[in-house]
Every structure is written in C-alpha cells, then in structure tokens.
Design a protein around this nucleic acid. Structure first.
Lengths: 244, 244
DNA sequence: GGAAATTATCGTGTATACATCATCTTCATA
DNA sequence: TATGAAGATGATGTATACACGATAATTTCC
C-alpha cells in the first residue's frame, strides 16, 4: 500500500512537450506501462492533482491521458467520482480470454493462408530466439519476444483493422495475463505450444493454426483467474464505493 | 459545402450539464450521429472554436468529445493540425468489412449455440417486423430494426467483451455501410439473407450461421466501396494538407 | 512580375481559475 | 452512545487565459 501511494505521489522526471508527441500521450504510455507491469494494480484510483504534481504538469494533459486510458478500457471512469484502474470480475476475465482466443485463432487462420515466405521465416526466427530465453529462464526476455511473436502473427493477416482490434483486446487482458511468465514451467509449456503453431503455419494449415492458437490462449485462463481472485481479495477497490 | 459549414456553425440547442451525463458525452453522441448519417461527411474538419460556439460551451468539453470520437476511430487527430472525420482508403474499407464479416460470423457461430429460447424468439420477432418495413419501403425503420436485429445476435454470444469489440467495428463502418439502405432492392435482398440466418439459428446450426453472416456482411462491401470512391472524389479532404 | 521572406491571423496545446459535487469530520441532539 | 445534520475539505467538471505552431496574406527584393 505504501509503495503504491509513492508510485503515484513520487516526483518523476519532468515531461517536456518538446518531443514530437504531446505530453498526454507520454503520460498515457507511462501509466499504461505501470498498469501492465502491475505497479498500478487493478482498482487503484488515479487522482488528477496527484498525477499532475508527480509529472510536473497541469491537470489538462493528465485528464487527456486518463481519458485515453479509459477509452482503451485499461481504466474506468465514474462520473464525479474519479478514474480507477480497471478491475475485472471473474466473468469478465473469462469473456476477455474467450474473445482473445477467438481473435488469435482468427488471425492465425488468416495468417496461415496469407503470410509471405519472409514473414513465415521471421516468425520461425522469433520462435528460435524464444527457445533461448526459455533455456536461460529469462522471463522478461520471453515476454518481450512473445509479444513480438504474436504481433507478427497478427500482421500476417494483412488486415490492419483486425490487427488493431486484436491488439486492443490484448492490451486489456495484459495486466492479468502477465503473471503466467513468472512461472518457468509455464514458459516451457508455452514455448512447446508455439512449436505446434509454427509448424502449422509453415505448412499453411489454417485450421490447425486456428485451433492450436485458441487452445494456447485458453491455457492461460485458469492461472490468470487465480491471480485475479487474489487481486480482488486485497485490493484498494474494496474501499471503493460502488466499484463494480 | 454551404450546408456543411452551416451544420458546424449553426447555433444549436444549448446543452446543459444538468443531465445525468456530462456535456462531452452529449456532444460526442451528437457528432457521432451527424457522422453516421452523413451530415458531417468523411474528411470534414472539426474545429474546436466553431463547435464550442455552436453548442454554447467552452472548448474543454468539445476537446473531450473530439477525443472520444478519435478513440472510436470515427475521427482522426493530426497533432497541431486539428481533428477530421475519418476518411478511409479503399484498402482500409475492405479491411473493415472483412473484420466486420469475421466478427459477425464469430458472433453468429457462438450465438447459434448459446442463445436462450427467449432470445431466439426475440430475433425471429425482429425478423418479422423487418419484413413489414421492407413491404412499406421504410428504409429508416429498416435501419433501426436492422441494428436491433444484429445487436440481438451479438448479445446472443453471452460475452460482453465480444459484443463491445463487434460494436466498435460496426460503428467504424457505419458511415460507409449506411448507403445500402437507400436502395429498396437491397432492403429486400438483405431481408432475404436474414431469413436464412434466422433459420440456421433457430435450428442451432452454428456453422451455417457463421457462413451466412459472413456472406451477408460482404454483400455490402461492393456498394460501400463505390460510395467511398465517390466520397473521396469530391471531398473537403481534397483541400487538406497531408490527409492520408 | 514573380518568388521568397516576413508578418498577421487563427487554431491547437497547456496552464490556471472558478463552479459543482462527493465525502469526511464534527457537533448537536435524541 | 448512537444518529443525523451542517460545515469543511478536496476532487472533478467547466470556463477562461496564455503560449506555441501552422497557415495565409502581404510585402519586399530580385
């Protein structure tokens, strides 16, 4: 609880609008990272004055950043009550995972048909690099490469809208999905599942790719569900009035 | 061009924050309606001072509304250059329709398995009400009921996240999809396609439902593509600097 | 007369000030 | 002591003011 308050109140490096992008976008990115990595846990309240002071800016860009977070469903806004990091119900988490599995399967099916030989080679290369992180037990490295692996799959559909939609759902589940990478055993089994997926794509088997990807996502459902329950038991949200 | 300028500059009924919802949300809803109905055509610039004056509010809620529109991809923001109603490229429109078809098919497949008998009955009832609007040539009524028809399908998945995702894509294609309803012949053929879909759902045939819905959406692709081309030929966007 | 540069104008990005609403504290009363 | 109402406190919602950047018009120079 203490470090949470600090993570909100602590002064950070002052953001400058001198970059090619506005302050709000930088703020949004920072907050999103903090949410995904768990520094800002689900249920955490995000107060404008605190954030403004922390980043040394006015409330205006802070409000804009919070609205961006709310639009991507990473945060939830309650009128006249403030913004909170989204805390899913178990039912909603299940719905998110099913959606994610369906979308990944869909992307895989299309990608298996449409990827260029260069793209397929790239995917295979990432798969081998992932093997190395598993051998080293480098969960951070695995997470990064795993994201690249799946992104390559999405882009293999050659459909930007589908990529956008899939990524938007992926971002929403990210805070709960992330815990799987803390288990080295899960890293290994995840990579084993990737093997089948890569094989299916390389031989252009769209049906197998779809089914394997669906199962691959659903594998993570149970472990994330447990994590969510533990989160909800001891969460700032418990002190909240009428927060879901 | 004149009426476009008017639609932006004309004074409207002053919005009040007295409602249960904020001004920004009302503004966003109004602008969204104007975009979907074509009053604000793709490519149209949305200037904050003009909108603020038109609705008798300050720039703050206007900015918030524009950001909401941007988040739902109905508008596009170019830093230091303003916000414009989204004008898709033909390639992007194709991508949107493929995504929409995939999502509708997915929803239909799940709904065919999961809908309660009450929900199935509701869908059938809407289908019969749609028949009446076709008989009367009531394209506005058809559009309204058609939306309800598809919404019922989405909700039949019993997955709120999937419903959200599908609706978000649906909103994005709405401005281009709408033209089909101006043709009475299309109304009739659309309704005929619905017949097959309803039949498939009533007998719980998930595979047939998926395929029919995919085809149902793709039917509209060509006619919307033509509309988009005509839009891009004579559009305010042509006067724009570096607008896609 | 045409092209480049300078200035003028206007919109966006940010900051600050004011209004409104929710919550917590406090004190009076049953 | 418990309860409830009134005030205090602080956050959100909105409006206004200023700074920066982009575009357009005008002027100046070739």
């Amino acid at each position: 609880m203490i470090e949470l308050t600090q993570s909100l109140a602590m002064q950070s490096a002052p953001l400058e609008p001198s970059d090619g992008v506005g302050i709000a976008q930088q703020l949004c990115q920072t907050l999103e990272d903090d949410i995904v990595t768990g520094k800002l846990p689900p249920g955490q309240r995000l107060e404008e004055p605190l954030l403004a002071k922390r980043f040394g800016v006015s409330r205006t860009p802070v409000r804009e950043a919070l609205q961006l977070l709310t639009a991507s469903e990473l945060a939830e806004k309650i009128p006249n009550k403030g913004v909170y990091v989204s805390l899913a119900t178990p039912e909603r988490l299940t719905a998110m995972f099913e959606s994610m599995a369906e979308l990944e399967g869909m992307c895989g099916r299309l990608a298996a048909k449409r990827m260029t030989s260069g793209e397929r080679h790239n995917l295979d290369k990432l798969h081998h690099e992932l093997a190395e992180t598993v051998r080293l037990g480098d969960s951070d490295g695995y997470e990064t490469l795993n994201r690249a692996f799946h992104n390559t799959l999405y882009r293999g559909t050659h459909n930007d809208v589908l990529v956008d939609v899939t990524l938007s759902v992926r971002r929403r589940v990210a805070p709960f999905r992330r815990v799987q990478f803390t288990s080295l055993a899960r890293l290994a089994s995840s990579h084993a599942e990737h093997q089948g997926i890569v094989d299916a794509i390389l031989r252009g088997d769209s049906k197998a790719t779809e089914e394997l990807l669906y199962a691959h996502i659903m594998e993570v459902h149970d472990i994330s569900q447990d994590y969510l329950v533990s989160l909800r038991e001891a969460s700032p949200a418990n002190d909240m009035p009428a927060f879901k």
